[in-house]
Amino acid sequence: MKLLIIEDEEDLLAALKAGFEKKGYVVDAAVDGTDGCELAFINDYDLILLDLNLPGMDGLEILKKIRENDLHQKVLILSARSDYAQRIEGLDLGANDYLVKPFDFGELEARVRSLLRRSFTQMGAVLKFGRFSLDTCAHLLYTDQDEIIDLAPKEYSILEYLLLHRGKAVSAEELIEHIWLSDSSLFSNAIKVHVSTLRKKLAAHTDQELITNLRGAGYCILKPVQNIDAKLRRPNL
């Protein structure tokens, strides 16, 4: 397994690099945020260990750039910032885990092993699709012109669920189970009504059909076509 450690405390960085290499990991290291961000886009890593207080580029900015290009890259934040608001900010930007300094190397290694066993896509707090952005913290839908689109609570919940399962057909029964938690027989028509009004609100700002109805399968927001060379693109540093 290949790790990237971005940490400006040189003694800690050296200790972490030696510790993980002793455990059989391949480790790249950077003491500067700009250099670390560049390595993250040049090479493929199974996991990135990321400090927040970095020279050159702040760790949260690095995380944001990573998530804009790669939803699958696993990132574990290591930081002396113990404030809960800062932890929440890091997790909302798409970190997979957060460990506060000082920490025990054994716990860190256990968390690394746990993350490496998982297979999932980590999304940030803002879900982008077409000309729109859904802020899952503020529960607001924006156009690319920063115009807020008023959504009813159930319309928002349906859109969020479809985006979190982008590319997958979601049945009306599944939406009801996760949004209403009630007998589907009571709400089968309600789903159609809410999806219809949601489509109309989106259609007022785009000609693209974003929510498709897959016959016999359910509703779906298709995944955008990804550039196969996306991993090789460097961000604007």
Rank of each mutant, 00 (worst) to 15 (best):
R111F: 07
L140S: 12
L164N: 12
A230R: 11
G124E: 04
I77W: 04
K154Q: 07
G56V: 03
S184E: 15
E174W: 10
T206K: 11
P153M: 08
R118K: 15
Q145A: 08
E173K: 15
N213M: 09
T206F: 11
N236R: 13
Q145D: 14
L116A: 01
L162F: 05
L116M: 14
E107N: 10
A80G: 15
D183M: 09
T121D: 15
T212F: 01
A152E: 15
V195S: 06
L12W: 06
D92C: 11
I6Y: 06
L4Q: 02
T212P: 00
K231M: 14
Y156W: 06
L91I: 14
H72Q: 13
G218K: 01
R131G: 09
K101V: 13
S188E: 15
V170Y: 03
V193P: 00
H139P: 00
D229I: 05
T206I: 01
K64Q: 12
A152S: 11
D46H: 12
N43Y: 12
S182Y: 02
Y142I: 01
V100D: 05
R131M: 08
L12V: 09
Y161P: 05
I149E: 10
D32E: 09
Q122S: 06
A230N: 07
M123E: 14
L52C: 13
S184G: 06
R199L: 07
V170I: 15
L91V: 08
R199Q: 10
A204H: 06
A80E: 11
N189V: 12
I77H: 03
Q122K: 11
K231T: 08
H205D: 06
C220E: 05
K128G: 01
R117I: 02
G94N: 03
P102V: 09
N69G: 14
V193M: 09
I228D: 15
L198C: 04
G124P: 00
V225Y: 12
D46F: 05
M1P: 04
K223H: 14
R234K: 13
I48G: 02
A230C: 06
L232M: 14
L159C: 14
V26F: 13
E38I: 15
L151M: 08
Y161W: 08
L198G: 04
S184K: 15
P55N: 05
S119V: 09
S119T: 08
N189F: 10
R166P: 03
L3W: 01
F129K: 13
S184C: 13
L76H: 01
L175G: 00
I62M: 03
C220P: 06
K23M: 09
G24F: 04
E38N: 10
L222N: 14
Y84D: 15
G106A: 12
D146Q: 12
F103V: 06
F20V: 01
N213G: 11
E160Q: 13
V195K: 00
R113S: 10
K168C: 06
S182L: 11
K168G: 00
M1L: 08
P102C: 08
S119N: 08
A14G: 05
H194A: 11
V112K: 00
K192Y: 09
D183L: 02
L198F: 09
E10P: 10
L99N: 06
R111C: 11
L91A: 08
K64S: 07
L91N: 04
R199M: 10
A95L: 07
D28T: 00
H178G: 05
L78H: 05
I66G: 02
H194I: 02
V126R: 07
V112Q: 03
S119L: 09
P102A: 06
S171I: 08
K231I: 02
R118P: 03
K64V: 03
K154L: 14
D97V: 10
